[in-house]
Design a protein around this nucleic acid. Structure first.
Ligand SMILES: [Mn+2]
Ligand SMILES: [Mn+2]
Ligand SMILES: [Zn+2]
Ligand SMILES: [Zn+2]
Lengths: 144, 144
DNA sequence: ATGAGAATGGGAATGATTCTCAATGCGTCG
DNA sequence: CGACGCATTGAGAATCATTCCCATTCTCAT
């Protein structure tokens, strides 16, 4: 995959290495296709100590390869950076904390961007991005 | 104000009291008009111990009077519940953490709601609400 | 090989938030 | 006016996700 190519280059450009653990983390997040909490990343995997996972996730975040997602429940989650996966949003269950990717129609996305851009300018904010999440109850939690 | 009326009633309905400290917290948040962190709530105010502030904010949240806002920087912020202030969004500075209220045009809001409703249904989510934030650099941080 | 610097991982430290609990306040009923 | 029951208070301890520390190990370039 040229995902790893990209990762290796970005790290190298700041004197870092794309080690086995880092590649592994990228793989885990790529396969998951949804933001994962640290316990979810580490659970059931050998040779992936918590401290190393945290350290490397931070490292990868600094390199712009990973994004830390702040969820309502207070626990951090991690996913590949949008630069690698494309812009998207999240559907989060307010009961069990599950988070799942969500794409919205391009026209709505464009309209959002346009409007928010104006509003940001009015507030003298240099906009970087927007965050749009749907917060509700997943199928499992909703039928309770 | 009938804000306090509302607050008193909601608390009473579950056997709670609308004490001086609780009224004070509601006032602070109402006057601020933007989500405040706990340090910001407590700073420079006499007779507002941290533990009581935390406890009462949680109490008020349970009563549906206050909402805890999860911001990117990991610190919780608090604001009056939308049921009291009306639905709105936030503009957050990714550098200094400042958060400020933001209202978006009603037509866009409606379109968002409609679209997200469909998407939630497709994912078998019982939607409760959406969260839309603008994340950027405030005037002060942007000019650095 | 070797040296310089990056990475590792076990455990200690941090710090926002939550919990505990003895003391206090308040409302109700006689 | 008491007095009991229960909510509240606040100082400090506890929690626990995350960050730090650091002695050891690994990588890469010379
Ligand atoms: Mn978007
Ligand atoms: Mn909205
Ligand atoms: Zn759920
Ligand atoms: Zn700022």
């Amino acid at each position: 995959m040229e995902l790893h190519q990209e990762a290796a280059e970005r790290l190298a450009s700041s004197g870092r290495r794309y080690t086995r653990t880092r590649r592994r983390l990228v793989d885990i997040l790529a396969k998951a296709g949804m933001p994962l909490s640290l316990p979810a990343i580490v659970r059931g995997r050998k040779n992936l100590p918590q401290s190393s996972a945290y350290r490397n996730l931070a490292e990868l975040e600094t390199a712009g390869l990973i994004r830390r997602v702040a969820s309502e429940d207070g626990f951090a989650r991690y996913e590949l950076a949008e630069e690698l996966t494309g812009h998207h949003h999240h559907l989060m269950c307010s009961r069990c904390g599950q988070v799942q990717d969500l794409h919205i129609p391009a026209p709505l996305e464009r309209r959002l961007d346009r409007t928010l851009d104006v509003l940001a300018r009015e507030a003298a904010f240099a906009t970087v991005r927007h965050r749009l999440d749907l917060i509700g109850l997943c199928r499992a939690c909703g039928s309770t």
